[in-house]
Design a protein around this nucleic acid. Structure first.
Lengths: 245, 245
DNA sequence: AAAATTCACTGGTAAGACCACTTGACCTCT
DNA sequence: AGAGGTCAAGTGGTCTTACCAGTGAATTTT
């Protein structure tokens, strides 16, 4: 029996998480007024500073609008939120939101291709070596989860090679959304991350400054994972339909 | 004479902004330890709760790593930050960072094309009407700034039509980065936002479910702005070179 | 030399008081 | 009536003070 490290959440983090879940879950609709800080403090059984810290984080995430003198109100996260929210949207109460999963896969695929193309245009000797090293490390892993970590590290190198801070930051967001789901996705994603030949091919295309080949290989590679996940989703939906019948 | 609404910043916001600027500006490098909350409070002349609120926001933005018992340390925002940071990175001390500008333009272009393609695949009668309305509103504006606002609203409709929450949230981030620069960009961006014919064409292509035409038109449109801004950047660099000579 | 302990420093939390601002009800004058 | 002013209640903003809870390094003990 393995012991899991206990992760203690601070009071403010706990408050933040709960309110975030309420907002993203729709229990607190856009425009709704949040209870006052004093009431929240009482309701959560914490001090007011703890509540305030949570609210500041909510405001930073674009989830609430706080104005002195008036009640703090919930904002429409679809209109004001950033991609940091994706990780919370992907899975709610342990149940994946397939529409969100689909959209993240789409984003991953389209952005991955563009980044690969950019990288091919800007590869240097250094970045080429880094890419090859990442491929080698990925190829040496046999565990599906480790392979996913390796694939993520590989793509991180690709993004670095693309030398675009905007794509880098977007990549970070997608990675943060994806990471918590890795163990659950391992069995499915092996169809993609197991194809070390394609990673090798992509690394070579980028190193050779072949933008077309890089984009094409990236498309092939990312479509594998997309197709695999999509197949699972469809299968689940089919089951649902059968149950209904 | 117009009156400007006065925007008063709270103490915690002020602290947050100052530390953010230090981190993004490189004065506080990744791995550096932040002064303790008590010292920061004294240095800024504010109370400790105010400092704590600021630090919580910094942590939420991925800029610092805070652990009880140990000093709060600065994280590598390139590795952990999200695209919300772009607005702060675009301009520092009033001077645009051209590498960041370029990367945002690249992101805008590539993502815009993909979103247009997605939208073409998922347009409905409702979304088509919304797109046309947005084009009409854009066409009725003559002021460059108003046109940019209209163009942004148009693209917002396109993203909605694409029906992808991931792209929606990414779009929000790019918009937040872009909005503060609009007045400065007005004269340059008019080359793009003034082409109401292309917006109209794009709206029609999306409504007609013509993915290829939508992608192509989007490319043409977005390249206009990209080229215009790139030309300005190059001109500035040329001036710099001449000065050096 | 290694292990255990101590201590100084860090962030985490709480309570209570007061300030600054928004809102809406109420009142007054026109 | 309607426009304006006044006021009170409720909200977020801030400060002070005190103590709790971890971390890490210096210190002591073995």
């Amino acid at each position: 029996m393995m012991f899991e490290p206990i992760a203690r959440k601070s009071a403010s983090t706990e408050v933040f998480d709960q309110i975030t879940a309420r907002v993203l879950g729709g229990d607190l609709a856009a425009g709704d007024a949040l209870p006052s800080e004093r009431r929240l403090a009482e309701a959560f059984g914490v001090s007011r500073p703890a509540v305030r810290e949570a609210i500041q984080k909510l405001a930073q995430a674009g989830l609430v609008d706080v104005r002195q003198g008036d009640a703090t109100s919930v904002r429409d996260f679809r209109q004001h939120g950033g991609p940091e929210l994706l990780s919370q949207l992907l899975v709610r109460d342990g149940i994946p939101d397939w529409a969100v999963v689909r959209s993240v896969l789409e984003g991953r695929r389209m952005i991955g291709v563009q980044v690969a193309r950019l990288a091919a245009g800007r590869a240097t000797d250094q970045s080429g070596a880094a890419l090859r090293e990442a491929v080698d490390r990925l190829a040496s892993d046999s565990d599906p989860v480790a392979q996913q970590v390796g694939a993520l590290a590989f793509w991180e190198r690709v993004v670095d090679t693309a030398d675009s801070i905007a794509f880098r930051l977007i990549f970070n967001s997608l990675r943060n959304a994806y990471e918590p789901t890795m163990t659950a996705m391992a069995a499915v994603m092996v169809a993609e991350v197991g194809r070390t030949d394609l990673y090798h091919q992509l690394a070579e295309a980028i190193t050779a400054h072949d933008e077309v080949a890089a984009a094409q290989t990236a498309t092939t590679l990312l479509d594998l994972g997309t197709a695999a996940v999509t197949a699972v989703i469809d299968a689940l939906h089919q089951n649902d339909s059968e149950k209904d019948t």
